[in-house]
Design a protein around this nucleic acid. Structure first.
Length: 182
DNA sequence: ACGCAGATTTTCT
DNA sequence: GAAAATCTGCGTT
């Protein structure tokens, strides 16, 4: 994901996402197909940015994923910073580098994402979603969703296993990672 | 390292 | 008026 905002470029590799999958998902903003001023972008065409404000402080960035009229999106929860580290740090102002883009609110702050880019297409400035590179030796872990109460146990959170950039480790503190299948 | 509680504003009931 | 797809700081272990 690359942002070019106010002339400043920053980019990061997506390492953690969470899916919100349509009118039948009680945790999703499009639940019951209820449209509102806030979630309108979620009903747009795939490849659209859906950005909303939460908890009085934070922006959350989503990628709309399904066809127009069907409310589904993927919340980007963490990035591995790859470009514009200085801009990110300047925007965040404080905290360890490992926390620059670790969490939905943090990455929006670091990337300069806010209401201004809600509903924009992701194939050109200010936001571009670029094809990720297939990795070797990395695996994607699937877990329950974070920060919600309804349907939290749906296995719709996807993280790069062992990545130091994710918002929460799959199992905190274990140095070798857990082999627990599931 | 872990856990708890406060912050702060938009949105919808 | 209540809840919210979170973050930070402060306390304890």
């Amino acid at each position: 994901l690359e942002s070019t905002i106010r002339g400043e470029r920053a980019a990061g590799r997506i390492v953690e996402v969470e899916a919100y999958v349509g009118p039948h998902d009680p945790a999703a903003h499009g639940y019951g197909n209820r449209r509102s001023a806030r979630n309108e972008a979620m009903f747009g065409p795939p490849g659209t940015a859906y950005v909303y404000f939460i908890y009085g402080n934070h922006w959350c960035f989503n990628v709309v994923t399904e066809s127009e009229g069907y409310p589904a999106a993927v919340l980007v929860r963490a990035l591995e910073p790859v470009a514009g580290l200085e801009v990110m740090t300047a925007r965040r102002g404080k905290g360890a580098p490992s926390l620059l883009c670790s969490g939905p609110g943090r990455l929006c702050q670091a990337m300069g994402i806010d209401r201004a880019v809600n509903g924009v297409p992701l194939n050109r400035r200010p936001l571009r979603l670029l094809a990720g590179r297939r990795t070797r030796g990395e695996r994607v872990a699937v877990t329950r969703r974070i920060g919600i109460t309804r349907a939290a146990d749906w296995p719709l959170r996807f993280v790069i296993e062992g990545s130091p950039w994710v918002s929460r480790s799959v199992s905190t503190g274990s140095s070798g990672g857990q082999a627990s299948g599931a």
